[in-house]
Amino acid sequence: MLQIFPDTSTIAEHVSATLVAKIQSKPDAVLGLATGGTMEPIYAQFVAHAHRVNLDVSRLTSFNLDEYIGLSPDHPKSYSAYMREHLFSHLGFDTSRLHLPDGMTQDLEAHCKAYAAHIQAFGGVDLQLLGVGGNGHIGFNEPGTPFDCPCHVVELAEQTRIDNSRFFAEGLMVPRSAITMGMAEIMQAREIVLVATGEAKAQIMAEWYQQDVTERIPFTALKRHPRARIILDEAAASLLPPEARQQRMVAVG
């Protein structure tokens, strides 16, 4: 289902409310979490909302999508640090239930298998948050990744590294590889919410809308998921056909 909201603020309110409702109905839910600029206003709104309703998050389990290889959890540009800054440190999470790939692991293959098995041991993900890259990647599953691929190591596409360089200080190189939850784990989630905002995502959203399911655009796989929602702001939806934008406009207020 495609939903278009006026701006990032209304998206943050909507996704936050979705998360709160999920946790209230299932306090021991398993969440799949994403990082990046798209998620920052969502996490900020969720934290504020959770405080307002005194939400208990202590029984939640979370699995993050990915982590850069070579960055320790305390590295300021690691996704572990991102999650602490934007979410984990603000609410009463049980830290033993918060899982991220280990970018410093010595045996990458064994770690990927163990991470995938750990997700399965918890019964899989109840609600998976996703952003999308300019080339259509979700997690770090770059174009061409098989849809049945489990958690794995990926060499990041040059465009992905360019896109992510804005998060690194001048002179710091974006790592060339990462561990990512695979398309298999993502597609096994019981519910998926993908958010895309800004003009920079308009072209890939237009391609997603026009294309059949193809590994060349990884997130087209979501068209096969029974409970996947694609949530856009007006800017990200700007290149969609007029009929798509009119028929799927969501009134907020």
Rank of each mutant, 00 (worst) to 15 (best):
L100G: 01
H86A: 03
G70W: 10
I162H: 05
S80P: 06
H118M: 06
V47M: 08
A116V: 02
K77I: 04
A50S: 15
N141Y: 07
R59H: 06
L87I: 01
T38H: 11
A48L: 12
P101F: 04
A48M: 13
E40C: 04
Q128L: 15
D163H: 03
I119G: 00
S89C: 07
V30T: 15
M39A: 14
H137F: 08
Y68G: 02
R97W: 00
P73T: 08
D107A: 13
S89H: 12
C112P: 14
R97H: 15
D107R: 09
D94R: 09
S80D: 08
D126F: 05
A116Q: 13
L100Q: 11
T145E: 11
T38E: 03
L127K: 07
H152R: 08
I42G: 04
V132H: 10
H75L: 04
E85F: 01
T61C: 11
G133C: 12
G92I: 01
N64F: 09
L108K: 13
L55D: 04
D126V: 09
T105E: 12
E40P: 00
N141K: 02
L108V: 14
S78F: 10
L60Q: 06
L71P: 03
C151G: 05
D94H: 12
S62C: 10
I42Q: 02
Y115V: 00
C149L: 15
T61I: 12
D56S: 07
M39Y: 03
Y43W: 06
F93D: 07
G134A: 09
S78E: 01
H152W: 00
D163E: 13
N64M: 08
A48I: 13
R161H: 00
F140W: 10
I42P: 01
G134T: 14
C149K: 09
R52F: 09
G123R: 10
D74A: 06
H51N: 12
L91F: 06
H118A: 13
G92M: 08
M39P: 03
H75G: 06
D66I: 03
K77V: 00
G131Y: 12
H90D: 08
Y115R: 15
M83D: 03
T105N: 05
S72L: 07
F122H: 15
Q120S: 14
E40Y: 02
N141H: 01
Q128N: 01
P41G: 00
S80W: 14
H118W: 11
V154R: 00
G37Y: 05
H111G: 08
G103A: 06
